[in-house]
Design a protein around this nucleic acid. Structure first.
Lengths: 262, 262
DNA sequence: TTTGGCGATCTTGCATACAAGTTCGCCGCC
DNA sequence: GGCGGCGAACTTGTATGCAAGATCGCCAAA
């Protein structure tokens, strides 16, 4: 394999480009905890590991820096970024602000009947789940919740807003469904789903009635639910390290100080 | 120059990397109107034009796509992005939302005395300018206004918020000082500066008193001033095409419809 | 023992050769 | 005359060679 063989010799041709493969694999490696924050991402070891040449590796690294998972060193090269608890809290608050703007736009500009029906349909499905507490239900909830939020952003009709939200969502633990699957094993977790669902219902109503300000502030509060989740998970050590991206954070369940900080 | 000479032969070594030079030059070319929206940015012609090889050109193009000035084609390659009036209005509104969040953070979390003094100092300098209407004053205003806003964002203390604002500010005509220099030649332009200055003063006061909500909404309204500017400039054709990034927009002063749209 | 300088090695930046995919135009056929 | 297919030119994706720069450790001198 060390010969000048072109990429036609690659084993499991996945259909995508080398750069895309490198990007997906690298993101997976980073989020799975294969690298810790501060670790240098040297190109040659990655070439060996990923089985592609330096060019796509370099392009993938550059993209991951844009995404915010890597940080560029002054003298060249990249390291895995570190996320403090303050970063996560800021990102969550910011997500609330942006999602709030999305639903305000949707309310002020008027929602398409079709979109509202889609929201209602997802919401109805969620309604049946929140009264169950098995793992399967939590897993389904993650998917439905994702669809709900994606629909909301789409309804805002602003590609720039969507981009801004993607920037914010890159922060580990700041996404809307970051903890849901982890919570499945914790007590009181079902109640959070009940609250979230009630906020979803209120959001739909506010958008229907074109109550922009109300929609905006419900969405903000809705995002803050993730902070409650964070605290809940932090109180029950042992589950935290299974959340993707944990290795990039400085959240240390061993240090009580972390719970009191800020 | 066609020989295998390395980049040591480059004429005016500017101290920066080839990639950085390509990035700066490309952004300048795009914003100056050298390329129109939809124009394909092929690598080889750019190699010729910029005097660097494909590798830094490619990296610069990727960065410009991330910035939002270019759009990636499905089959590879990039084209200059198009910005509609709706894009500009959304970006401006979004800038208001994000700057509003910045000043809310600054107010809620408490501002450092030093930062408040800096704001006051810049504000005092601006106060003297707004009563003059010469070009020199407008030019100085642009710099001072930039410092004022940069300080506000810094005071929020969130690097993610800063990143999100950079994404939004990449949209041509959406930045805080996009039109100021152009306005200098227009009537009524001085009044806008007076209004902007009064909003600056109110912002400082709100942050000092830790009135987060008030600060947030002043900042939103402050951003909307740019929309007034946009309409003012659109009403006076002939100055519009001197604003950087004009060629990327579909703002056509010839079509009255543009003034009435949305 | 500590510190400063020097050298080797590792790492990235850049250029370029080559290959694959895409697009466009032309020619032949219907 | 129109349409379809084929081929050539162009464009991007990928790999790799080379050189400059950074980093780190080691050795010598104070």
């Amino acid at each position: 394999m060390t010969a000048s063989a072109t990429h036609t010799a690659s084993a499991t041709e996945h259909g995508t480009s080398q750069t895309m493969r490198a990007l997906l694999r690298l993101r997976e490696l980073i989020l799975s905890g294969e690298f810790g924050h501060g670790d240098r991402m040297s190109e040659l070891p990655l070439v060996e590991r990923l089985g592609v040449s330096r060019t796509p590796v370099r392009l993938a690294l550059a993209k991951l820096e844009h995404e915010g998972l890597l940080r560029a060193l002054p003298g060249g090269g990249y390291v895995v970024r570190e996320f403090t608890r303050a970063d996560i809290e800021d990102a969550t608050e910011l997500r609330g602000v942006l999602e709030g703007t999305a639903v305000r736009f949707a309310a002020e500009r008027g929602a398409a009947r079709r979109d509202l029906r889609a929201l209602q349909a997802v919401s109805d499905e969620i309604a049946e789940l929140v009264h169950q507490a098995d793992y399967e239900s939590f897993a389904r909830y993650v998917g439905l919740n994702g669809r709900f939020h994606a629909t909301l952003v789409k309804m805002a009709g602003s590609s720039l807003l969507q981009r801004a939200l993607e920037v914010v969502a890159a922060v580990p633990f700041a996404s809307a469904t970051a903890f849901v699957l982890t919570e499945a094993e914790l007590p009181d977790s079902r109640e959070i789903l009940v609250i979230a669902h009630s906020q979803h219902l209120a959001l739909i109503e506010a958008i229907e009635r074109r109550e922009g300000a109300r929609a905006e502030y419900i969405a903000r509060e809705h995002a803050r639910l993730a902070l409650t989740n964070l605290e809940l998970v932090l109180r029950h050590r042992g589950v935290l390290n299974r959340v993707p991206g944990y290795s990039m954070t400085t959240l240390d369940p061993g240090r009580e100080a972390d719970l009191l900080r800020r």
